[in-house]
């Protein structure tokens, strides 16, 4: 076995000239004399390693990862809850806004109606006042006109009487005067 396993390395051995005997017999990994010691120490060290992994490292790492997963899930749930709250707040805000708008609209139309009716009544009142004043003024004017007209007749009669007296030397009779005046004035 020794000659087989050493054959690929003969080149380098020649170059540096190391006696084979220095390493003892055979190719080290196939040297069964070392097996018992290697097995024993592997079992001891790997056993200790396994114990440490099983009892310390693996529980700790899985704990860390689980904590993180829980925390992330919790945070996501919290974020969802907050989002829902925000949505609700937005909805209620919009509801309030719509209510306020409707209310404002109502107040505006009510005010408008109130103002409209107030203006209407005042205008009607003013118109009625004006109509009264107008008719009063008209009556006054008519009265004054009639008075004036009646005075005109009187003044005309007097003037005519005076004129006739001067021209004819005698005063006209009342009936003639009346007839003449009527004819002239109408």
């Amino acid at each position: 076995m020794a000659s087989q396993t050493h054959s690929p390395t003969d080149g380098t051995h020649e170059a540096i000239d190391i006696p084979q005997a220095e390493h003892g017999a055979g190719f080290p990994p196939f040297d069964a004399n070392t097996f018992s010691s290697q097995i024993l120490w592997l079992v001891i060290t790997f056993g200790v390693f396994y114990w440490i992994m099983k009892n310390v490292v693996v529980p700790r790492l899985s704990g860390i990862l689980e904590d993180r997963r829980d925390r992330i899930a919790g945070d996501l749930a919290e974020a969802n809850r907050l989002k829902q709250e925000t949505d609700e707040a937005i909805a209620s805000y919009e509801q309030a806004l719509a209510d306020a708008r409707a209310k404002a609209h109502g107040i505006a139309s009510e005010t408008r109606a109130k103002l409209k009716s107030g203006i209407e009544s005042r205008r009607e009142k003013a118109e009625a006042d004006l109509a009264v004043k107008l008719s009063e003024a008209e009556a006054k004017i008519t009265g004054m006109k009639n008075e004036a007209l009646s005075q005109v007749e009187e003044i005309a009669g007097e003037t005519t009487t005076e004129l006739v007296k001067v021209l004819m030397g005698k005063a006209p009779t009342k009936t003639d005067l009346g007839k003449a005046l009527k004819a002239a004035l109408n």
């Binding site: 390395t9 170059a15 390493h23 190719f27 080290p28 040297d31």
Partner: peptide
């Protein structure tokens, strides 16, 4: 330079 030396126990 012996490539097998490193495997010696």
């Amino acid at each position: 330079n012996d490539p097998i030396h490193q495997f010696h126990i």
